[in-house]
Amino acid sequence: MKKSLIAVAVLGAMSSAAFAQSNVTIYGILDAGIVSERGGAAGTTTKVTSGAASASRIGFKGTEDLGGGLSAIFKLETGARIDTGALDNTNNVLFNREAYVGLSSKTAGTLTLGRQYTPYYETLRDVGDPFAMGYAGTAKNLFPVASFMTRNDNAVVYKTPNLQGFTGAVSYSLGETAGDTTANRQVGASLGYNNGPLNVAVAYNSKNNDTATVKTNGIGHNALIAANYDFKVVKVFGAYSKDKGLNSAPLNGPATAYSTTPFIASKDSSDALLGLTAPVGDTAGTVMASYIRKDDKEFNRDADQWAIGYSYALSKRTSTYVAYAKIKNKNGAGYTVGNNSEGGTGDKAFNLGLKHSF
């Protein structure tokens, strides 16, 4: 009798474990290299830096099977500086990269709450930029993806399941301004189609710049279309963004890189990108190249960026890379060549580094 009761208890425990399966993964990226930046007012800067290709980080993510195709999910991710060992954050934010919890359904999609990427940023990174927002050639240098355009606090995000190649996302970031539900609010959305060699997507972002005390700052709007097509021997990329309103084009680099007089971001501009990636030799190597044009319709302070890079996979987890980019600023423009983790200090930069994922 006692043995029978023990067997029933064990089977019951195993059944509960099977129903509520959960797992937690610790992961990260260690990216360190040498960066040389030139052309700024401070002169040439050469340094060992962290995160030129991909921002160095450590993260925790997990799922719990709730049954019926529904799962609870979470993610906590913080940046790290490989050159100094310090946390790569601002304002003492521990999980500065992402921090969210939510529910995911195989048929209904995913709903998450917390600090998360904007649909605009994800569209440009995953579809439009051959450098995937990394290296000296990152689209961050000229496209409006700095600051709140990268991630939102207090965000509620819904992502659809893949429906025969179609996917969509909607993001609503609460401004949390007392007495005003619209001040500091941010809304974003994207719609994409990925099937075979074609990957195309559109995205939109709207940022209300009003504060608790100033109600006339207005709204910044951004509309983006991005695409890539894989011809096997080469993958071709393209992107175009229209940016209108206050804070519609936040600067990625310092406003005083070339002069003590701060460079002012445009409130009416557009950005265009053409690029490619191509496998080299045994396909472990990849060449990346792009051209980006910033058209400032407010001040006529335009800029052009040319970039080229090469990444070589030493294994599935480790790669080495080299990249170079140059910006030609016009009519007093002050854009800088940075990388995935830094805004840069001049109009040209060179990267040489090593990246390991775990």
Score class of each variant (00 low, 15 high):
2 K>I: 06
3 K>A: 14
6 I>P: 02
9 A>K: 09
12 G>E: 14
13 A>Q: 12
16 S>F: 04
20 A>T: 13
20 A>Q: 01
21 Q>P: 04
25 T>E: 14
27 Y>D: 10
28 G>Y: 04
29 I>T: 14
36 S>T: 15
43 G>C: 07
48 V>A: 13
49 T>L: 02
52 A>M: 15
52 A>T: 08
54 S>I: 11
54 S>Q: 15
62 G>W: 10
64 E>T: 11
65 D>C: 11
65 D>W: 06
68 G>W: 05
69 G>K: 01
80 A>G: 13
80 A>L: 13
80 A>K: 06
81 R>A: 10
88 D>S: 11
88 D>T: 06
89 N>Q: 10
90 T>A: 15
92 N>K: 12
92 N>S: 14
92 N>C: 03
98 E>N: 11
98 E>T: 10
99 A>W: 02
100 Y>K: 10
102 G>I: 12
105 S>G: 14
111 L>E: 02
112 T>C: 03
112 T>R: 13
126 D>V: 14
127 V>F: 04
127 V>K: 10
129 D>T: 13
138 T>K: 06
138 T>S: 15
139 A>C: 08
142 L>N: 02
151 R>G: 04
151 R>S: 04
155 A>F: 00
155 A>Y: 01
158 Y>H: 10
163 L>Y: 05
163 L>D: 01
169 A>Y: 08
172 Y>F: 08
173 S>P: 12
177 T>A: 01
178 A>I: 12
184 N>G: 14
184 N>C: 06
185 R>V: 09
190 S>L: 02
190 S>W: 00
190 S>R: 06
190 S>D: 12
195 N>S: 05
199 N>I: 03
199 N>M: 04
202 V>W: 03
207 K>H: 13
208 N>R: 04
208 N>G: 03
212 A>E: 04
214 V>R: 05
218 G>T: 06
219 I>L: 07
220 G>F: 03
220 G>Q: 02
233 V>F: 15
235 K>W: 07
238 G>F: 05
241 S>Y: 04
243 D>S: 15
245 G>L: 12
249 A>C: 06
249 A>Y: 11
250 P>I: 13
252 N>W: 14
253 G>H: 09
257 A>Y: 06
262 P>M: 02
264 I>L: 04
265 A>G: 00
267 K>P: 00
269 S>G: 00
272 A>G: 02
279 P>F: 03
279 P>M: 01
282 D>L: 08
285 G>R: 06
288 M>G: 01
289 A>I: 01
293 R>K: 14
296 D>Q: 04
296 D>V: 07
298 E>G: 03
301 R>D: 05
309 G>C: 13
310 Y>V: 06
317 R>H: 09
320 T>C: 11
320 T>S: 14
323 A>D: 15
323 A>G: 11
326 K>F: 07
331 N>G: 01
331 N>E: 02
337 V>R: 02
352 L>P: 10
353 G>Q: 14
356 H>K: 01
357 S>Q: 09
357 S>A: 10
358 F>Q: 06
